Amino acid sequence: MSMVQIRKVEDLIVKYQKKKRTVAGIIVEPIQSEGGDNHASDDFFRKLRDISRKHGCAFLVDEVQTGGGCTGKFWAHEHWGLDDPADGIFILQTTFRKKMMTGGFFHKEEFGTNAPYRIFNSWLGDPSKNLLLAGVINVIKREDLLSNADHAGKALLTGLLDLQTWYPQFISRVRGRGTFCSFDTPDESIRDKLILIETKPVAEPKLLTDLLPFLSGMVLGGCGDKSIRFRPTLVFKDHHAHLFLNIFSDILADFK
């Protein structure tokens, strides 16, 4: 992301201010997930934070997918080195791979409600899920899973970069932070075919090798127009990365 995008954001805010229309806030994803696992630089986000502060806009970080430790820090925005933290963090619960066990957000004191139970029903949450969340956080700390995600992510990213060198016709733009890794394929059809090969069990396998993609636990997902992304759990380790890379390398070698 360049200064051009930064200037566009500020120009839009000024444009609305001239029309007497206040921009309440700027909402960003640390990594644009569904759009294709797109990354911006840490400096980009710091400058965006400066713009929000300059114009009195709230700066909100959507950590639905990046929160919980998969980037090597509990919150992905911790990588940015902000001197003034974000005004609010969204942690919205969905049914798959959202590690927080509950829905909610935290924020600075000035963004609090001025009366009790303003967000009573849908947003109050379930106290039992808070107990589950506390258990998850305790395990993350006790087993040092943030360091594990950072270390295992480097092994995965290094291996993907090697595969990119060996199979540039299938893999490009390898990127990642922690285990939050992804790469591009030439087009959607090749992407979808690769995912199908990796995840679909063989109905009547004739050879043990026919079952390898399924038995290895290789379940990958697509995002954006042509990207494949990785969302392993926090207990994903170096040897898991190497297992995947070996199997995926064999798949690419035979891929047509």
Rank of each mutant, 00 (worst) to 15 (best):
residue 253 A to N: 01
residue 63 E to Y: 03
residue 164 Q to Y: 06
residue 167 Y to G: 05
residue 252 L to A: 01
residue 18 K to T: 00
residue 109 E to T: 11
residue 22 T to C: 03
residue 2 S to D: 15
residue 90 F to T: 01
residue 121 N to E: 15
residue 2 S to W: 07
residue 39 H to N: 08
residue 32 Q to M: 12
residue 3 M to T: 09
residue 143 E to G: 08
residue 177 R to K: 15
residue 204 E to V: 08
residue 151 H to M: 09
residue 228 I to G: 00
residue 11 D to L: 04
residue 231 R to C: 09
residue 16 Y to W: 02
residue 242 H to T: 13
residue 61 V to G: 10
residue 48 L to G: 04
residue 48 L to A: 02
residue 207 L to K: 10
residue 175 R to I: 10
residue 169 Q to N: 13
residue 220 L to C: 01
residue 32 Q to T: 10
residue 2 S to V: 04
residue 162 D to E: 13
residue 181 C to P: 13
residue 108 K to Y: 05
residue 22 T to V: 06
residue 255 F to P: 02
residue 159 G to S: 07
residue 71 T to V: 07
residue 41 S to E: 09
residue 60 L to F: 13
residue 232 P to G: 09
residue 58 A to Q: 12
residue 202 V to S: 11
residue 70 C to W: 00
residue 45 F to P: 03
residue 184 D to N: 15
residue 254 D to E: 04
residue 73 K to E: 07
residue 124 L to K: 15
residue 204 E to I: 08
residue 40 A to L: 02
residue 75 W to R: 04
residue 248 F to T: 01
residue 208 L to K: 08
residue 172 S to V: 01
residue 246 N to V: 04
residue 220 L to S: 02
residue 31 I to N: 04
residue 197 I to K: 14
residue 248 F to P: 03
residue 227 S to R: 08
residue 238 D to W: 03
residue 208 L to T: 03
residue 87 D to E: 07
residue 9 V to Y: 10
residue 8 K to C: 06
residue 146 L to S: 09
residue 182 S to T: 14
residue 80 W to G: 00
residue 188 E to C: 14
residue 215 L to Y: 03
residue 116 P to Y: 14
residue 205 P to F: 04
residue 79 H to Y: 00
residue 216 S to K: 03
residue 32 Q to H: 13
residue 41 S to N: 11
residue 10 E to A: 08
residue 236 F to P: 04
residue 157 L to S: 04
residue 43 D to G: 12
residue 9 V to G: 07
residue 6 I to S: 07
residue 216 S to Q: 02
residue 220 L to E: 00
residue 235 V to D: 10
residue 115 A to W: 11
residue 232 P to Q: 09
residue 128 S to K: 14
residue 223 C to M: 05
residue 43 D to E: 15
residue 182 S to E: 12
residue 35 G to K: 10
residue 137 I to M: 14
residue 251 I to V: 12
residue 199 T to R: 14
residue 72 G to Q: 02
residue 217 G to I: 01
residue 232 P to F: 08
residue 69 G to E: 01
residue 58 A to G: 13
residue 7 R to D: 11
residue 30 P to G: 06
residue 60 L to T: 09
residue 137 I to G: 05
residue 191 R to N: 06
residue 38 N to E: 12
residue 5 Q to Y: 10
residue 114 N to E: 13
residue 247 I to R: 08
residue 213 P to L: 03
residue 81 G to W: 01
residue 155 A to D: 05
residue 103 G to V: 02
residue 246 N to M: 07
residue 67 G to S: 06
residue 161 L to M: 09
residue 104 G to W: 05
residue 47 K to W: 03
residue 183 F to P: 15
residue 28 V to Y: 02
